[in-house]
């Protein structure tokens, strides 16, 4: 009580002392410690089991940067990027077609999605490769003429098989994104005299991106893993490379582990890229963007140092 009275009457002219920060004993989360110990223990057992197994682990680092393995990694990444680019470009077009007032384009898009989403991608890959049975020659007049078998290289079969399949999924993702944008946005844009196409490009799609990007990141990662199926069309991807190297020198299982590690590395890098892309398209919809990991680190370091000086001043 006396302290309170002092605080009220005491300072005449002198600034009132800042209210004291709460110093309390934090709740102890024993459950967290227990679960961490159990999880680490189980992980240790698992690692031990693998270490004891009949796997020659030494060959994994030895072949990590093997010329053939690296070629497989490069091919896998390249195929993923090109197929995804094809998928996204065609997907946006299909989504717009499907939402169009024109019943012809809407039906074409519906039919495309129906076919490519309704059949397994593995089957599609094989079909592209063997389409020579239907089209013996490819004849684009003066531009290009060849026999189908020569025209349809493993890379092209893989690209078309994966890319056209991906487009069907991307079309649905883009459609969901476009439909998520408030109708008032389209109306406002139309009221300003902007055309249908400008409204889509300048107003709707940029806002749809916020809904489109996260599942597209998933699709990208998924596609990267699906490229392991292109072994069906004899394209030299990471899995094919690992299998080849495994059979000739490195050991089959060891090289499969190596392939798994490489897939993990690439998907992890992609996840980081996805984070920054999502952040970019959150502009305007959030008052404050979420901090990047680097900003988080800086903020933590900063808060530690200010805490230190405050404590010093108070003591």
């Amino acid at each position: 009580m006396t302290v309170d009275i002092d605080k009220v009457t005491g300072p005449s002219g002198a600034p009132a002392p800042a209210p004291e920060a709460i110093k309390a004993i934090q709740v102890r989360h024993y459950g967290r410690w227990v679960s961490a110990v159990i999880a680490l223990g189980l992980l240790g057992l698992l690692v031990n089991a693998f270490a004891q197994g009949k796997v020659n682990w030494g060959t994994v680092p030895d072949y990590s940067f093997d010329k053939d393995i690296l070629k497989g990694v490069r091919n896998t990444i390249w195929l993923t990027i090109v197929a995804m680019a094809l998928g996204v470009a065609l997907g946006v077009v299909l989504a717009v077609m499907r939402l169009s007032k024109n019943p012809v384009t809407a039906s074409i898009a519906w039919g495309y999605i129906w076919f490519f989403r309704g059949t397994p991608v593995y089957v599609q890959l094989l079909l592209w490769f063997n389409l020579g049975l239907v089209f013996e020659y490819i004849n684009l007049g003066p531009i290009y003429q060849d026999e189908w078998a020569d025209f349809m290289t493993p890379f092209l079969a893989a690209l078309l098989g994966l890319g056209l399949n991906e487009a069907a999924y991307m079309a649905e993702i883009c459609r969901a994104g476009i439909q998520s944008v408030d109708e008032g946005q389209t109306e406002a844009s139309h009221a300003l005299g902007m055309s249908q196409a400008k409204t889509l490009r300048r107003v709707v799609l940029p806002q749809a991106m916020r809904v489109i990007v996260p599942p597209t990141g998933n699709e990208f990662i998924n596609l990267l893993k699906t490229t392991s199926l292109v072994i069906a069309v004899q394209y030299y991807d990471l899995l094919q490379a690992a299998t080849n190297v495994g059979q000739t020198s490195g050991g089959t299982v060891e090289m499969l582990f190596l392939a798994a590690i490489w897939y993990l590395v690439v998907t992890s890098v992609l996840s980081v890229g996805q984070f920054y892309l999502e952040r970019r398209f959150a502009r305007g919809s959030l008052r404050q963007l979420p901090p990047t990991p680097w900003q988080k680190v800086k903020a933590n370091v900063g808060s530690l140092s200010t805490r230190g000086t405050k404590g010093g001043g108070g003591a």
Partner: peptide, 22 residues
């Protein structure tokens, strides 16, 4: 296209603002 041209000369303000958030 012609409807859009007509709308250029007519400004509209909405109850819910409808600003472009991005």
């Amino acid at each position: 296209r012609e409807v859009a041209a007509q709308r250029r000369d007519i400004g509209m303000v909405f109850q819910r603002f409808n600003l472009f958030p991005h």
